[in-house]
């Protein structure tokens, strides 16, 4: 049981680093935002594994929900201005 938990934790950590690399290197902003939200999602699963469901909930609601929504909202705004300028 314990080894399974550790294995899941290590996998999550690797996935988080991988997603962080995607966030930095990808060209399209929308993909980068989605990847940034994924990092928070993985982090919230990690918090759940570490027996902190309250923190996991905050991370999922704010880090992966609100922030991603907000970034997309701002992206939509910026795009709108671009279209207007052209």
């Amino acid at each position: 049981m314990n080894t399974i938990l550790i294995a899941i934790g290590v996998l999550l950590a690797i996935a988080m680093i991988f997603t962080a690399m995607i966030t930095i290197h990808v060209k399209r902003p929308a993909v980068a935002m989605l990847a940034a939200g994924m990092i928070s999602l993985f982090a919230s699963i990690m918090f759940l594994l570490l027996a902190a469901p309250d923190v996991a909930m905050t991370e999922a609601a704010i880090g992966s929900g609100l922030t991603t929504f907000l970034l997309f909202f701002v992206l939509g705004r910026v795009r709108g201005y671009d279209d207007e300028a052209e």
Binding site: D54, M57, T58, A61, I62, G65, L66, F69
Partner: peptide, 8 residues
């Protein structure tokens, strides 16, 4: 947490 969910 609930407040953040409502805001979303």
């Amino acid at each position: 947490q609930g407040g953040a969910i409502i805001a979303s």
